[in-house]
């Protein structure tokens, strides 16, 4: 009995350790730009997931929900540029040094993300095919920015 309890405890601890491995699983710290941007990006992933699951047919298409997905992306785009001050690196952050060595390129990536998400959110969203086109255009930004300015650590 004691043994099973100990084992369960160890597993729980190990799982907690795993969870802590991602910065966005800790509570957001409003004074820490790394913590803020990781939470913002994690939410962006969840919003993108709602869009992706609608497109895959896993959940029903809803034009209002589709617009909310694009508006969430746009909100993240509007805020993200300020969240990478010089020196905001840590062992846990996956921001790549190119953000600071190629400042102009990173700014341009943020500006494009803002422009594309604002334009997409303003388009008609009546049919799933209209949404598919907008979703494709905005998510190309995820790939482009992560390709140049983000590096996986785990």
């Amino acid at each position: 009995m004691l043994r099973t309890t100990l084992a369960a405890g160890a597993i729980a601890l190990a799982t907690a350790g795993l969870a802590l491995a991602s910065g966005s699983d800790k509570p957001a710290d409003p004074t820490d730009p790394i913590s803020l941007r990781q939470h913002l990006m994690a939410n962006l992933g969840k919003a993108t997931g709602i869009g992706g699951r609608m497109l895959k047919g896993e959940i029903d298409y809803n034009p209002q929900a589709a617009r909310a997905v694009l508006l969430t992306m746009s909100s993240v785009a509007l805020g993200i540029g300020r969240m990478f001050p010089e020196g905001s690196t840590s062992p846990d952050s996956e921001a790549r040094d190119t953000i600071w060595t190629d400042r102009a390129g990173f700014r341009a990536a943020v500006a494009k993300f803002i422009a594309d998400t604002e334009a997409a959110a303003a388009q008609p969203m009546g049919s799933i095919d209209e949404f598919r086109a907008q979703f494709g255009a905005v998510t190309a930004n995820c790939k482009a920015c992560h390709e140049a300015y983000r590096i996986k650590k785990n």
Binding site: G45, K46, T48, G49, G52, T139, C142, K143, C145, H146, E147, A148, Y149, R150, I151, K152
Partner: peptide, 8 residues
């Protein structure tokens, strides 16, 4: 699966 987007 978490709708993170592949990079690098």
């Amino acid at each position: 699966p978490d709708y993170d987007s592949a990079g690098g």
